[in-house]
């Protein structure tokens, strides 16, 4: 990927994020009800009107939008309408690192599980390690996290009492959520890596290396690994974005104070600024990681680089 197209993609990121944020801004306000409705925040008519005026919700839509854009220009996402003494920036500054820690650890776990299992499957293709790996990964792919997580809690926390049930106060609290998330994504990584590696191992340049008498370990590590990583890399970008912004289900079951709960609650409480702020963070991460994926792809595959 040459410098110019990287620059162009980089410049497009704020534009796309702005488009997504605007879409979320207007869609949120099109949804029925408001943050200070009787059912959400019981109060008298006067209090409701005063609250609306305080947060400029009584202004015409276009003025609210201009206000929102002006805030964005200062990297200020505005006040939260539900947690009224906190700005959206503060809430994100607290919840995002938690989600990112959990997501980053789970990403590492997914690679640590997926790459060796996938490699074993490709190297011993059709023999018992391959069958075992295929069985394990198929199970990992097909058992969703919201089934795996409660079962893991049942077994390791309630029955065996090895690990805490839920919470986020010590490193041992992280073990179960990280493993559950890591296993789920690791199974996908293993399938992709096995497929990619066995494909490469069948290709003529590997046969040539073998005929030349290169040691099998050198063939695997020096020649086959890099091209075989391609499918994994193209999956890893979106996966990392998903993981970093918090897995709703795992955060909920293990009561991890990340962004997952805010995503859902901010919709139900019509907390417009919080919701839009989360959407912006999510789409920025996704766009940046997509670009990083493409760049890694080109670095790994010289045919694309020189095309």
């Amino acid at each position: 990927m040459d410098a110019r197209s990287i620059l162009r993609r980089l410049l497009a990121i704020p534009l796309l994020a702005w488009a997504v944020a605007s879409l979320a801004f207007f869609l949120m306000r099109a949804a029925p009800g408001g943050p200070f409705d009787r059912e959400r925040a019981p109060a008298s008519k006067e209090v409701e009107a005063a609250l609306k005026a305080r947060y400029h919700l009584d202004e015409p839509l276009w003025r609210q939008y201009v206000r929102f854009l002006a805030g964005l220009a200062h990297a200020d996402l505005g006040p939260s309408l539900k947690y009224r003494h906190h700005g959206v920036n503060d809430i994100l500054a607290q919840a995002l690192p938690v989600s990112m820690t959990l997501g980053g650890l789970a990403f590492a776990a997914a690679l640590a599980i997926g790459l060796p299992v996938g490699m074993a499957g490709a190297v011993w293709r059709g023999r018992w390690p391959d069958w075992l790996g295929a069985l394990l990964t198929m199970v990992g792919v097909c058992i969703p996290t919201f089934v795996l997580a409660p079962l893991a809690v049942l077994l390791f926390a309630l029955k065996l009492e090895w690990l805490p049930v839920a919470g986020w106060s010590s490193p041992t609290h992280a073990i179960l959520p990280v493993l559950v998330l890591g296993l789920y994504f690791g199974a996908r990584v293993a399938r992709l890596f096995r497929e990619g590696l066995s494909e490469v191992l069948r290709s003529p340049f590997i046969m040539a290396a073998r005929a030349k008498g290169v040691a099998p370990s050198a063939i695997l590590l020096r020649h086959a690994l890099r091209p075989a990583l391609l499918p994994v890399v193209s999956y890893a970008g979106p996966m990392l974005a998903d993981l970093l912004t918090g897995s709703f289900v795992v955060e909920r079951i293990f009561q991890v104070p990340g962004t997952g709960a805010f995503f859902i609650n901010s919709f139900f409480s019509r907390d417009y600024p919080l919701m839009v702020g989360l959407v912006i963070v999510y789409s920025l991460l996704l766009l940046v990681l997509n670009l990083a994926t493409d760049m890694a792809y080109r670095w790994l595959d010289p045919r694309i680089r020189h095309a």
């Binding site: 879409l23 979320a24 995503f263 789409s283």
Partner: peptide, 13 residues
């Protein structure tokens, strides 16, 4: 663009 929009939000809306 639609890929960059979290689809949980779309369904909720």
């Amino acid at each position: 663009l639609l890929y960059a929009l979290p689809n949980v939000i779309f369904v909720m809306l």
